[in-house]
Design a protein around this nucleic acid. Structure first.
Length: 604
RNA sequence: GCGCCCGUAGCUCAGCUGGAUAGAGCGCUACCCUCCGGAGGUAGAGGUCAGGGGUUCGAAUCCCUUCGGGCGCGCCA
């Protein structure tokens, strides 16, 4: 995690960041004048929207934060600061409230100026610079190329992809990466299963034979998804592999074939979700390039590798456990419970050793900021990999490992039981085909990654307020609808964004209209906050809230005709309201863009 | 036994990295359609933020502890 505070960027369109820097400047002046002691730490001074809009437009805790080191009463200091804050441009009022908050009121024109920013910048409104062009690597999906992806993978894919887009919006130089686990025993098992299916395709054995081999555990993958690749293999090579018996003569070849085939399937599925990685790194290539040896040497030279014996595992202790000397990494020096093996007693590298080499590879490619999105079933590996990264970067690297909790699929209100053996798991493709990628993507982003998520087939297709996808899209569509009507009502008017920006926004006087403007003004800081916290789901809630305010405004027009957006007798007020409508649409569209969801023009 | 995540309205969840009187949706109660798409909207009731301690101007948020849930605990990948 980077240690930039939002104020580092002070993007001109982020009025809260602007206020924060102006507040800092005033305090700086007071220190220079000797009114306040020099050297005060301003990092905890905030400028944020108060929870109650009645409290004003911007609240700052400056007095409360600074009172302590000065040994003054917060309220006294607040009174002093408030006097000076009144002189800040655009501030019309500064008052002390509660335990020492200073509430600032801003000129209404500030909010209108925000709307002009939105219209001028389009979906770029909200772009931030907290990333300062810093490289960051987001690794996600990384599903084993042993079969089709399921709903759990879909969540990781969407969370990773949206986070990558969010970080890019916030000014980071993002690389989206996929680690292909093509070197371990699992891909060998798939190769064996593929050969069975291949023999079946050629008519040499029957489905029953395959199922019996599965029951005898001669093969570990029984799914019929291996039949298409088996057919492809038969088409390419004919019966070439029937007579090759020695495993060493066919396992590597068929493994390579399967991995290539499955990766194509996976990439197709990801493309259907609008997920595209920049870099695919092969575990096997990492190993073949002797990067494990290099990484272990690096750790060894730092004195972090030794040969020792692990304590007996707790909990369900394996029957055949016996103490054996192993090559170990001193993970316990970096917060792990025990040291972790780099080599098995067979002499082979462990998966962890390969992962360590892979992370060193990322570091060597220039990344000190790393994010890994994993399934929650890998929670046990988090500490050791973080430990390895610290060791590899002399403590300078930052690795955030985000665990995605379970996705529970509900059909007819009942959870769908998923079992790999029974072949009843819901694939990612099923989901996309059934509800569409936009719905899948949005729903996957309505919870924070470490909370379990219910995916209810019925609910996500529902056309009601309960369904956030619908509700947000509906707001966008309504906005487009108004624009279409406006074009008919005012044939000569310039309804482009640039044209609307010239509208007389002072005509926006209704409290709820200004309320929407305030919400729009909060978009940049929402983006920044979500990016720095690695929490894309915050944008889902922002969009829902904005949509809610917009629907409410729309409805007021139903009750009171003079509040409708379009007034045929008053083009001036219509254009001002259209500007607002368009601003809402643009901000929703930019939020949806982060989510990789296409905004709709109309509801069907 | 150990580690990680979690516990907020009857239910599903937010809570902007410590701020003011803890917020939405569903459900419940009472309302609003000759409308730019009511597939909506307005208002109300509903809370010892699991319990207990601590840190400080201030805690749902940070620390300790108890209780209750979920996930994971091989040299697998």
């Amino acid at each position: 995690m980077l240690h930039h505070s939002p104020s580092d960027s002070a993007a001109p369109m982020n009025i809260f960041a602007t206020l924060k820097s102006r507040i800092d400047a005033v305090i700086g002046d007071l220190m220079a004048e000797g009114v306040l002691p020099a050297g005060l730490d301003l990092s905890k001074v905030s400028a944020e929207p108060p929870r109650e809009s009645a409290h004003g437009d911007v609240a700052t805790n400056a007095a409360m934060v600074l009172a302590k080191p000065m040994q003054k009463a917060p309220k006294d200091l607040a009174a002093l600061l408030a006097e000076r804050f009144k002189k800040i441009p655009d501030v019309t009022e500064a008052s002390v409230a509660g335990p020492g908050f200073i509430n600032l009121k801003l000129a209404d024109d500030i909010w209108r100026a925000t709307l002009r920013d939105v219209l001028a910048l389009g979906t770029a409104y909200g772009d931030a610079n907290v990333g300062q062009g810093e490289p960051i690597n987001v690794e996600y999906v990384s599903a084993n190329p042993t079969g089709p992806m399921h709903v759990g993978h879909a969540r990781g894919a969407v969370v990773g992809d949206a986070l990558a887009r969010l970080l890019a919006k916030a000014g980071f130089a993002v690389t989206k990466e996929y680690y292909i686990n093509d070197a371990g025993g699992q891909v060998d098992h798939v190769a064996r299963a593929l050969r069975m299916r291949y023999l079946q395709v050629l008519g040499r054995i029957s489905e029953t034979d395959v199922q019996e081999a599965l029951a005898r555990k001669e093969i570990q993958y029984g799914g019929d998804y291996l039949i298409p690749p088996a057919q492809a293999l038969a088409e390419r090579d004919g019966d070439k592999w029937v007579s090759v018996v020695e495993e060493a003569q066919w396992v590597p070849q068929l493994r390579e074939f399967t991995v290539a085939y499955m990766m194509n399937v996976i990439k197709d599925d990801l493309a259907a979700l609008s997920v595209n990685h920049d870099v695919f790194t092969s575990e096997k290539k990492v190993m073949d390039a002797h990067k494990i040896e290099a990484a272990v040497k690096f750790l060894d030279e730092a004195g972090l590798v030794y040969t020792g014996t692990l304590p007996r595992p707790r909990g369900k202790a394996p029957e055949d456990w016996e103490p054996r000397p192993l090559l170990l990494f001193r993970a316990s020096q970096f917060g792990d419970d025990i040291d972790r093996p780099l080599k098995k007693s067979t002499g082979d590298w462990t998966y962890f050793a390969g992962d360590t080499a892979y992370h060193k590879d990322k570091v060597d490619r220039g990344f000190l900021n790393l994010i890994n999105i994993w399934g929650a079933d890998h929670a046990g590996d988090v500490t050791r990999v973080k430990a390895a990264l610290k060791a590899l970067t002399n403590g300078e690297g930052h690795l955030d490992i985000m665990l995605c909790q379970m996705v529970r699929v509900l059909k007819n209100g009942e959870p769908v039981k998923m079992s790999k053996r029974a072949g009843t798991f819901v694939t990612m493709r099923d989901l996309i085909d059934e509800v569409g990628k936009d719905v899948v993507r949005f729903i996957m982003l309505t919870r924070k990654n470490d909370a379990p998520l219910d995916f209810d087939y019925a609910k996500v297709m529902e056309k009601s307020r309960e369904n956030p996808v619908f509700y947000v899209q509906y707001a966008h569509a309504r906005g487009r609808s108004v624009l279409r009507h406006a074009a008919e009502m005012f044939p000569g008017a310039d309804l482009s964004d640039a044209g609307l920006a010239k509208a007389d926004l002072a005509r926006l006087t209704d409290g709820d209209e200004v309320g929407v403007l305030r919400r729009l003004a909060a978009w940049p800081r929402t983006v920044e906050g979500a990016a720095l916290a690695h929490e894309p789901h915050r944008l889902a809630f922002y969009m829902y809230d904005l949509a809610s305010q917009f629907h409410a405004l729309w409805n007021k027009g139903n009750d009171a005709a003079q509040l409708r957006f379009l007034q045929s007798e008053d083009q001036s007020v219509s254009l001002a309201r259209l500007a607002l409508v368009r601003g809402v649409g643009l901000v929703i569209a930019s939020g949806l863009a982060v989510f990789g969801v296409d905004p709709v023009e109309e509801m069907r």
